[in-house]
Amino acid sequence: MDEAAFLARFRRDGAPAPHPGRFAGHAWEASWEGFARVLAGVGGSLADAAQEPRAAVQAAIDLAGGRVVAAPAAGERLAAAGVSGWEPAGNGAPGRFADVQLGILWAELAVAENAALLFTAESLPERSLAFLAERLLVLVPAGALVGGMAEGVARAPRHGHHHTWMSGPSKTADIEQTLVIGAHGAKALVVVRW
C-alpha cells in the first residue's frame, strides 16, 4: 500500500512522549582480562599476550589443515609481518569460501562488556568469509578495546553497507537446551591482540 496511507494509520494527536536521550549507564572497565572472561563464557578464546602475535598466527595457519583465507585488512598486516600460508580473499562469488578451514579477520574494535568484535565494510568487505569459514582467527589492535557496548555502538559506522558485532563462535541450544558450538558459522573463534 501507499506509504502515506500506511503511515496515516499510526498518526497520533498530542505531544509525543519525549526521547529519553543518551543512556548514561555503568562505566565498564576496558580490561582485556574482562574481555577474555566474557569471551570464554561465549565459547571463544583470547590468545595469551605472552605469545608473540606473529608466531601465534603462523602456528594457527600451520595447523589449519586446509585452505586459509585472510580478509583484506588482516591480509595487509600478515603480509607486512611476513606470515605465510594464507591466500587473500580476492574477488568473486560469495560462495567461494565454502571450503575455507581458517578465516583470518581484522576487527576494528573489541568490547569488554560482551566480548563483541566489530567488523565493518572496510575491514570485512566480503561478509561471507566470516560465516562460511570453519574456524576464525581474529586480529584486533591491542589499543582497540572499549569497556561498554554503548561506547562500542557510539563508535560504529553510520555509513557503509554493513557492520557486524560478533561475540564468540556460532552456537545453538535448540535441541534440549544443550549448547552446541558451530550451528552454521564458525566452530571456533580465537582472538589475537595484534
Binding site: E113, A116, M149, A154, G160, H162, T164, W165, S167
Partner: peptide
C-alpha cells in the same frame, strides 16, 4: 538500537549479546 541490544540477549538466553548482530544498509 544499542540500548535494546544490551537487553535482548541477556533477557532471552542470558548471553551478554547474540553471537552475531548485523547491521545491513
Amino acid at each position: 538500537a544499542g540500548v535494546l541490544l544490551r537487553l535482548l540477549a541477556r533477557s532471552a538466553t542470558g548471553q551478554p549479546i547474540t553471537s552475531y548482530t548485523t547491521h545491513l544498509a
